[in-house]
Nucleic acid binder design. Structure first.
Length: 801
RNA sequence: GCCGGCAUGGCGAAAUUGGCAGACGCAAGGGACUUAAAAUCCCUCGGAGUAACAUCCGUGCCGGUUCGAGUCCGGCUGCCGGCACCA
């Protein structure tokens, strides 16, 4: 009898057994240490999964499998983030219900995932479009609403004319729609917001409590964009009006020569009758409105604007009257929508001043304001009581004291992050559980009436007016007010795609609970998520949204931890064989199922981790896939070349490999872990025979990577149970240390020969042995040895003159 | 402009605290086995140089620190990702 490794038979065989015996089942609560590994659940698209998904999941799949073998109670779940526009658009195109499409896609995705042999606990699958799930999404929304964190506001919103939906800032980064990549336009509309800005500081503070890589941390901090500065009240001459501005440089107040307000600033309407050139200003405002966000930010190099005639502002620190402008380089959405302009020390103000022939007053020495604005440090001048200050921090502090003393301003902070636009005028999303009552205003749907079910409709198309398809369903819209019992109307917008994913990791902990989103005891046991892996593209969307919801749920006592994720990592992309991003239109997408069919799941799993640094992008190579297949085939063949006794010469290498693989998995350095197993296999083969126990230890190390093959070998060699549940190998540190090592022998820092020497040999011994080497003797002949540098086990260097 | 990252053979990539650059794999070339192919096994494989050694050069560029630099420091260049008239 000999070991046969036909992956097409072996892989389904073990997948069936694992599922039948539920060996990847997580205990709700247990005495064992717990490990909660989380991967970003997929959006079940019609296209199916591609190999990028496989790489994204395989990282923590390896960690989770290792943890089980180490005796942990492991929660490694999967689910589907299934609400969203692609399914709805496909529904409109093919005239099928999104439910039907979504169910088919989930089925397809599940089959694909199972064919790769992931060790998910399939009893805990969540589907965000399941009413038993979105009941709790709605429940959280009502809690947010009750706590003043969900509100409606009529403001300028990002609107995608193609998708006919309002988008959040996060969904319209770079002025493009995240779904269809069309240009976003600004539109005034009354929409729902979640007050994420109230949590800006907590979202920043929380970053100190978690283990996130530097780039992710920096991106989140950047997105939140906290800046420290001051609010200063300028007055409008001849009125008691206050024009409030935000600045990060209050120390430059004496250099203010004009002010600028955003085109949408309310001051214009308020003083329309005082403004003598109101027609010109109205025309400018209309022009700005027509520009897309993209044009306004990127295409307009020249500063444009109009002077507001008839009113002037007063600089509160020196009483000087200064002109007021309207210009689109000032944004209504940041600060107060108005700025004090210091052209000598801000390049934008400088450009504007040059274009309009305005005064430029230097208040900080050090630059050449004839040429450009100076933004560096220097001595204060032309600044009254600040003159002579040389330190920016001191002059800001002194100015803040002055402002507060006079009651004309105070220190303040600003954030770039804006509140989260939280509704979509579409069908395939969670209905927002709010009732509009003419008497009581907005009233939450009573908790006992949740879930508020998505009604059946005939036509999923959104209205041209930007109205949700739900608005056409009278039986849904018309209702009675829960408060006063009078006739009322339901909110018809639905929640955005990111709602369901903002808390899904909580539901995995207790997926079937109908009393609470999850049992508090179970939450206490499992939270926080120990390790969360996902894509970089979610850092300023899903990751920040879900942290916000979790902070809120912590504040209202629903979850036991402040931060949801103790550790976060990110996988790099799998690029096409041509080195570009995989895309349907280029035709370089690799289907994981085809790889499984041709090479096997174990080969696919091993390859996506072996291809390079886990966090970096690297191109697909089918020939390299074959290389991984060869590696697994060679391991299988070795099962027939064993002996009972251990082979002494392999012992050290085996222990080194256990150590290397054990540590590399923790650091997500899977590529070098696999490389060390390949190197050990080379040694095994070179040795001719291998001890059976040594071989089985090796196979255990490989189990997380190639579990099907390893189970087969385990069974073939007559072992009990599943290798997936066998104890993880331990290494003996003493056996990983060599007693004799080869060290480099250098002359004047150049490697000239190698010396085999005891690792703990003293300098005298090493020096004598080194000089005895013919090559070294020749090179040092007739020269004086000035210095000897010896690092035991590393290097011996003779400095010779 | 600001923030983060990267730059090593023909290719994907390795290289604890600075210590034999290129582990591991792919591709390529040569050979064995075979009627043949596939599969498998063996050898070579950064460049120049040599019969073979020796030797010299080599981690984006310029400079520095050091006995010794892919690694540390200063100054660049190029590429990738994120943000961006953010006051």
């Amino acid at each position: 009898m000999s070991m046969k490794y036909n992956f097409r038979e072996v892989e389904p065989k073990w997948q069936t057994r694992w599922e039948a015996e539920k060996i990847f089942h997580a205990e709700d609560i247990s005495d064992k240490p717990k490990f909660y590994g989380l991967v970003e659940f997929p959006y079940p698209s019609g296209a199916g999964m591609h190999v990028g998904h496989i790489k994204a999941y395989t990282g923590l799949e390896i960690v989770s499998r290792k943890r089980r073998m180490q005796g942990y109670n492991v929660l490694f779940p999967i689910g589907f983030d299934a609400f969203g526009l692609p399914a709805e658009n496909y529904a409109i195109k093919t005239n099928q219900h999104p439910r039907v499409i979504t169910d088919a896609n989930i089925k397809h995705f599940s089959e694909q995932l199972k064919s790769v042999g992931f060790s998910f606990d399939w009893d805990r699958v969540v589907d965000t479009t399941d009413a038993n799930y979105y009941k709790w999404t709605q429940w959280i929304f009502l809690k947010l609403f009750e706590n003043g964190l969900a509100y409606r506001d009529k403001t300028l919103v990002n609107y995608c004319p193609h998708c006919k939906v309002v988008l959040s800032n996060e969904d319209s980064q770079g002025g493009k729609c995240d779904i269809c990549h069309s240009d976003i336009i600004q539109k005034e509309k009354e929409v729902w917001y979640l007050r994420i800005t109230k949590y800006a500081d907590k979202l920043l503070e929380g970053l100190d409590q978690v283990d996130f890589p530097e780039n992710i941390r920096a991106q989140e901090e950047n997105w939140i964009g906290k800046s420290k500065g001051a609010f200063v009240n300028f007055s409008i001459a001849g009125t008691d009006e206050t024009l409030r501005i935000y600045t990060t440089r209050p120390d430059t107040l004496f250099g203010v020569t004009f002010m600028v307000i955003a085109p949408e600033h309310p001051l214009i309407d308020k003083y329309a009758d005082k403004i003598s050139n109101i027609d010109a200003i109205t025309a400018y405002r209309e022009e700005c409105q027509k520009k897309t966000e993209f044009e306004r930010v990127n295409l307009v190099k020249e500063k444009t604007g109009v002077r507001i005639e008839g009113i002037t502002a007063v600089n509160p620190v020196n009483g000087k009257e200064i002109p007021l402008f309207i210009a689109d380089y000032v944004m209504m959405g940041y600060g107060t929508g108005a700025i004090m302009a210091v052209p000598a020390h801000d390049q934008r103000d400088y450009d504007f001043a040059k274009a309009f022939g305005l005064d430029i007053i230097e208040v900080i020495k050090g630059g050449d304001i004839e040429k450009e604005a100076y933004t560096g440090d220097g001595m204060m001048v032309n600044s009254d009581f600040l003159n002579g200050y040389t330190n920016k921090k001191d002059s800001i502090e002194r100015m803040l004291e002055f402002l507060e003393e006079k009651g004309i301003g105070e220190a303040g902070v600003q954030y770039k992050m804006k509140d989260w636009a939280f509704n979509r005028q579409r069908y395939w999303g969670e209905p927002i559980p709010i009732i509009h009552c003419p008497n009581c205003g907005m009233v939450g749907v009573p908790y006992e009436e949740l879930p508020l079910l998505l009604p059946e409709v005939e036509n999923f198309k959104p209205g041209e007016d930007g109205e949700s398809p739900l608005a056409k369903i009278e039986s849904f819209v018309n209702c009675t007010c829960p408060k006063c019992g009078g006739a009322a109307k339901r909110e018809t917008d639905t929640m955005p795609q990111w709602a369901g994913s903002s808390w899904y990791f909580l539901r995995y902990i207790d997926p079937k609970n109908d009393k609470a989103l999850a049992d508090p005891e179970k939450l206490k046991y499992w939270l926080p998520v120990d390790w969360y892996n996902g894509g970089m593209e979610h850092v300023t969307r899903h990751l920040i949204y879900s942290r916000f919801w979790h902070h809120f749920l912590y504040d209202i006592g629903v979850v036991p931890t402040f931060e949801p994720y103790a550790k976060r990592s990110a996988q790099g992309l799998v690029l096409g064989a041509d080195g570009t991003k995989m895309s349907k239109s280029v035709g370089n997408v690799v289907d994981p199922v085809e790889v499984v069919n041709e090479f096997g799941a174990d080969t696919l799993r091993t390859y996506v981790l072996f291809m390079g640094d886990y966090g970096a992008s690297s191109p697909w190579s089918e020939t390299s896939v074959r290389g991984c297949k060869r590696f697994l085939d060679r391991i299988a063949r070795l099962a027939d070349n064993l002996q009972d006794e251990d082979v002494k010469s392999l012992e050290s290498g085996l222990h080194k490999t256990i150590k290397k693989v054990t540590n590399d998995i923790e650091d997500m350095k899977f590529n070098t872990g696999i490389a060390s197993m390949m190197a050990l296999l080379n040694d095994f083969e070179a040795a001719g025979k291998v001890g059976k126990d040594q071989y089985l230890t090796f196979v255990k190390l490989l189990t997380p990577f190639a579990p099907h093959l390893c189970e087969e070998i385990w069974e073939y060699l007559g072992q009990e149970g599943f290798i997936s549940l066998a104890p993880w190998p331990e290494y003996d540190e003493a056996k990983t240390i060599d007693t004799t090592v080869e060290i480099s022998v250098q002359v004047n820092g150049k490697p000239r020969d190698v010396l085999s020497i005891a690792v703990d040999a003293d300098e005298e011994t090493a020096k004598a042995a080194g000089l005895a080497l013919p090559k070294i003797a020749k090179l040092t002949e007739g020269k004086r040895i000035v210095k000897v540098i010896y690092r035991p086990g590393k290097i011996l260097n003779f400095v010779a003159k």
